[in-house]
Nucleic acid binder design. Structure first.
Length: 484
DNA sequence: CAGACCTTGTC
DNA sequence: ACAAGGTCT
């Protein structure tokens, strides 16, 4: 029997540009590709429902590629990785386990545990970088610490060497190990059962490396032309829509980086637009570095001043927000897009988060948790840093007193109301003039639109200017008590 | 240590 | 005009 090596797929569900997989194959040992559904190690941050839908389809796609290119199948196991990986080594005689690194605190701790455990058993356990452009620790201030400000971080990223060119598809392994027991994807019940909350998502998303590559090509062929402006208009396809693909590692950030650079080399006029896009990719890096250096980021405010902020408790308001029934059309459209599609446009993420944390003064962690469950691109680093950024408690955050006006935001970024009409169809009959504030519409206009406020669309659950004043004074109180 | 600088807004 | 203060060189 040949020596065998396990490649443990994690958040790197791809064959191309996967350095750990490359190295595993290059070892010449019989390759055993494994995925473990581990709901124990992450504890409270195990995959949410929408991510599980995505995972199902992504694993199915990966399995297909493994079969097609290498004639082998993905071995699926469910349980704690710390238990299952050593067991798999016993079962197969594998003397090496390779994987890509992850940056969540629980994942880093798991990697440490495995390191010790395998060292003791004389099994070679190797982690490879592959999910980021720049490893945490490689981008530091002159004082040697982590950056807390994005712009300086990004400047430093660009001053060093470019990320390496991506690797291609690894050649076929010299040998494979077949006949191993595997769960089936159906066993795992990752898809929602009836009622099928994810109905129709297949038409919106194509999880897997192929879908990721197509999205990237579409973006580089079209939306990148006007990225800086169009990225803010949710009724348009103005963004790359790559977030979930990146989160599951179906495409690597350096594949995105270099494909973008190659496009600009062909079309120099895209330079400015593409730099904006690359800087968004760098925000993903920044978030991961922050999480690495501040592992409490998903739980604790980054700025200590917010530790005793007087958050409200209001289950009714929370539910109205979750269900897209706040009476603010733009907020409701965003929340319904999330529920119905597993995704929310970036502009809306800011608007609804500002509304939750400022107008309702509910804790950002409630929003973080809801997003975690509902987003197909849920990612611990991005989600935590995004919520803290809007709440004002984060690194390089939007100041607390910067309170989005949900009406103005709607008028500015959805002037024709296409986005609102798509997700809040009961408002579709309102003329644009009143679409963003139905409660200001004259009775006759409401009647013509078939609207009875409080019945088929809610009245605003809070009044904007008084909510704004209350938020500012809560902030003043918190700041004062902290300064004492 | 001084000085430049700081993703996304509102009234 | 306003809102506050921290980060980084």
């Amino acid at each position: 029997m040949n020596e065998a090596i396990i490649f443990w797929f994690r958040q790197d569900l791809r064959l191309k540009d996967n350095p750990g997989l490359d190295a595993a194959i290059a070892s010449g040992k019989a390759l055993i590709p494994v995925y473990i559904l581990d709901d124990e190690s992450p504890s409270q941050w195990r995959l949410g429902q929408a991510s599980r839908w995505w995972l199902h389809h992504s694993l199915s796609a990966l399995n297909k590629e493994l079969k097609q290119h290498y004639g082998t199948e993905l071995i699926l196991r469910r349980g704690s990785a710390k238990t299952l990986l050593p067991k798999l080594c016993d079962e197969t005689g594998a003397d090496a386990v390779f994987c890509s690194r992850q940056y969540e605190p629980w994942a880093a701790a798991l990697e440490q545990d495995l390191h010790h455990l395998f060292q003791y058993r004389a099994i070679s356990f190797k982690r490879f970088a592959g999910s980021l452009l720049f490893e945490p620790g490689s981008i530091l201030t002159q004082a040697g610490g982590p950056f807390k400000v994005f712009t300086a971080f990004w400047r430093r990223c660009r001053s060093g060497p470019e990320p390496a060119l991506p690797l291609g598809l690894p050649k076929a392994p010299q040998s494979l190990r077949t006949g191993l027991a595997s769960d089936t994807l159906t066993d795992w019940q990752l898809l929602p059962d009836s009622p099928n909350w994810a109905a129709g998502w297949e038409t919106l998303w194509q999880p897997g490396a192929e879908g990721a590559a197509q999205r990237l090509q579409q973006f580089l062929n079209a939306a990148i032309d006007d990225y800086q402006d169009a990225r803010d208009i949710p009724a348009q396809v103005g963004t790359s829509l790559l977030s979930a693909h990146l989160s599951f590692g179906e495409i690597s950030p350096r594949m995105v980086w270099h494909a973008t650079k190659a496009k600009v080399a062909q079309e120099h006029s895209l330079l400015e637009q593409s730099n904006k896009f690359l800087s968004e990719l760098a925000w993903r890096e920044f978030s991961h570095h922050l999480l690495h250096f501040f592992p409490q980021l998903p739980q604790e405010p980054f700025k200590a001043q917010f530790a005793h902020f007087p958050w409200e408790s209001n289950p009714t308001a929370l539910q109205a927000w979750q269900q897209g029934q706040t009476g603010y059309p733009m907020v409701d459209a965003g929340m319904r897009e999330l529920w119905q599609s597993g995704y929310m446009h970036n502009r809306l993420r800011m608007i609804v988060a500002s509304f939750l944390t400022k107008h309702l003064r509910l804790h950002w962690r409630l929003g973080e948790r809801w997003f975690w469950d509902c987003l197909v691109d849920a990612n611990l680093a991005n989600n935590a840093s995004g919520w803290q950024w809007v709440a004002g408690s984060g690194a390089d955050a939007s100041p607390y007193f910067r309170i989005f006006n949900p009406t103005t935001q709607g008028e500015k970024f959805d002037p024709q109301g296409d986005y609102i009409r798509r997700w809040v169809p009961e408002l579709a009959g309102l003329p644009n003039k009143y679409l963003h504030q139905p409660s200001k519409a004259p009775a006759k206009v409401l009647e013509q639109a078939g609207l009875v406020l409080g019945e088929n669309y809610p009245l605003p659950i809070v009044e904007h200017s008084s909510a704004r004043e209350q938020a500012l004074s809560a902030y003043a109180v918190a700041r004062e008590s902290f300064n004492l």
